[in-house]
Design a protein around this nucleic acid. Structure first.
Lengths: 115, 115
DNA sequence: CGCATAGTCAACCGTCCGGTTGACTATGGC
DNA sequence: GCCATAGTCAACCGGACGGTTGACTATGCG
């Protein structure tokens, strides 16, 4: 519904919006608080938030007079899955992934281990 | 250089361009051949290809009078990595990934095998 | 009640985007 | 040499985008 790739990728194509997502990664925030670190009008930020919400990347819940913004990674996952279709060949098996894989394999070899 | 997230995500935000990438996934193609299935002028497709190239998603090599377009997944990988920062929780492609992982692990167990 | 705070709405502005057409430049086949 | 093929360039068009300002609504505080 709000998860079509067009709007998701379009939403991600703006550095301000990506920065907002990064901020929301740490904690839910009110619109005004989101706007604070940016040199931009509150209206401008509000628009960006609407775009993110419409793309399904965040959800917004009004509580009293403050509107809380919360990251919603589902849409991101959809986009990520689409992208991984291209990575399968050779992108996937790079450095980080290979190390992760090696760790996983050796872990499977020694059976069970919980830090 | 051509790998900033702005241009990559912007390039991905168009359905025609995503379709082109999918086509190039199967094989390298000449500009005219890329254009063929679309109801759009050759110039239009050429522009899309330039946008993809500038984003680093494809490379173009001119051989004779035909310009070959080739998928270049590196830029996609960068974007994918950025996105996975948000997916850490649960994202990374469950099903397909887990099956791949299981196959990889069992393959590692039986040591060597080249089709 | 009165005022500050949180946020939206509507209008506007300049710029970029997706797409077209028409003219143009190469390269290749006969 | 001639013509078809491959592709680009430049100009143009409507519409969307990023951003601003000013007026407005609504909730909370004292």
């Amino acid at each position: 519904m709000g998860t079509d790739l067009d709007s998701v990728f379009a939403a991600l194509a703006d550095p301000t919006r990506r920065a907002i997502l990064s901020m929301l990664l740490e904690d839910d925030m009110a619109v005004t608080d989101v706007a604070e670190p940016f040199e931009m009008s509150l209206t401008g930020i509000s628009k960006h938030l609407n775009i993110l919400a419409q793309a399904g990347l965040i959800t917004q819940e009004r509580r009293g007079r403050v509107k809380w913004c919360k990251l919603d990674p589902d849409a991101l996952r959809d986009a990520s899955i689409w992208m991984q279709g291209f990575g399968q060949f050779e992108a996937v098996n790079l450095d980080a992934f290979e190390r992760f894989l090696a760790a996983e394999i050796s872990a499977a070899g020694m059976e069970a281990e919980e830090p």
